[in-house]
Design a protein around this nucleic acid. Structure first.
Lengths: 242, 242
DNA sequence: CTCGAACGAGAGCACTGCTCTCTCTCGCGC
DNA sequence: GCGCGAGAGAGAGCAGTGCTCTCGTTCGAG
């Protein structure tokens, strides 16, 4: 139903897309702080006021870019996951995590937009939620699959966390052992801590050889949510007991 | 030598401090994006150009605030550590981590300034390094102490990470087992991942009861660097085998 | 005591987001 | 087939920004 529409509506969506494209280009080049509506309009050969027919404010444009960025990252994670669909859970977990890192390194300013400091007044609107959830859903899917194979061994939780963990699991990952929700959310936040620290320069002069460092950290995160290698594959590589 | 100085120099440092104070006030109220040199000057009863006698640019002012924020956070961590100086390493570890979280929740915009997206062109100047290192040094100290007590059990590393881990340990925490450096850096990044996610709203509608969640996650981080409870103190609270 | 350095004021430049008004044109409903 | 209104773009303008430059004044080190 959205394919057939008047020429006017078609032009509108086309121009909207062109504006977002140019904005994304500026975002990638200079960062969110220097994204200027006037510059976008200038580049598109229109006057700045005309742009307000498409986006009611600069923040609104940024919000659109945020949603797109979440989707782009989510898609990267999902396709990385599909590329190793047959492998054991631990391998898929690291593949997805490395896809997240790779996307972040390739799109630093977009990553900063979604996982850095919140730009506008506060907290992005509800529309971004589904896009933002995609990476998390992939990780949950991996853990669920491991659970169904009977390979999941989630570490125990202290008693004061059991209630909250059960609630989180019921809401995010129903069917999994009740400790899994809390473990997953923690791993999720820690994953982005690792990526963010590398991207924002906190690893400068600290971590040099980042690829193996990240890879190992991510395996440890997997252990934290209960994923274990089905059988050791490398001599010692994935066999730490913790 | 810095105590006795001319009235002019005294006035200069006083005014510099007043500018930073007012800037910090605006930063806390509106965030870094809306920090305006003109508004600071206005509030101080001076004209904007006069402010350039003290800070050559807005970015320079922000850099000063960044250093101060690192110092403030570092001091919070250090004094939290001193407050539990006698306790066993695991307790001290969680105390410091919780101090970091508390500071972040109390100073969200300053936290965003130092651990959110880098604001200016890129990567803060060298002057911020010592201030930025303070939290890390406290954590390293705790681990070192555990090591000297013979209570440290750092999990093994995959072979391809041994070289880099040794280098990191030698540079950051000489004397510790060579795996410790990598484990510490990973825990450090993950700690700030947890704090940042909570602060930037990624836990909204996901984690409700955040205090015990954070506490447990931080205990897990401690396990990751090799800290174990000397003897179980609560019934099961800190006794997960990981 | 003097002269230069430090200081503050003010005007001004180029830029920003955003609003308002004006005109024109396109295409939908009749 | 046509008229008219909604949608689109242009332009001027407002309030604000960072930053520069010039110009008196004033303070204090030599």
């Amino acid at each position: 139903m959205s394919t057939v529409k008047g020429a006017r509506a078609r032009a509108r969506t086309e121009i909207t897309a062109a504006i977002k494209d140019e904005a994304r280009r500026q975002l990638a080049k200079e960062g969110a702080a220097k994204l200027s509506l006037r510059a976008v309009a200038r580049e598109l050969g229109m006057v700045s006021s005309a742009l307000y027919r498409y986006f009611p404010s600069r923040d609104e444009l940024l919000t659109a870019l945020i949603t797109d960025a979440y989707d782009s990252l989510g898609e990267a994670a999902e396709s990385a996951h599909e590329a190793v669909a047959g492998a054991e859970p631990l391998v898929r977990w690291t593949a997805v995590c490395e896809a997240v890192r790779a996307w972040a390194l390739a799109h630093p300013h977009e990553y900063a937009l979604i996982y850095g400091s919140p730009v506008p007044g506060y907290s992005a609107p509800r529309t971004t939620v589904p896009a933002a959830a995609r990476v998390g859903l992939v990780l949950i899917g991996i853990v669920r699959d491991a659970h169904e194979r009977g390979e999941l061994a989630v570490p125990p939780l202290p008693p004061e966390l059991l209630g909250e963990a059960g609630r989180m699991t019921a809401e995010l990952a129903p069917g999994l052992p009740s400790e899994a929700g809390a473990a997953l959310v923690a791993a999720w936040a820690q994953l982005f801590g690792l990526v963010g620290f590398e991207l924002f320069g906190h690893f400068n002069r600290v971590v040099e050889d980042r690829e193996p460092f990240f890879r190992h950290a991510v395996v440890r995160l997997a252990h934290g949510v209960g994923l274990r290698p089905a059988r050791p594959e490398g001599p010692g590589a994935l066999t730490e007991r913790t």
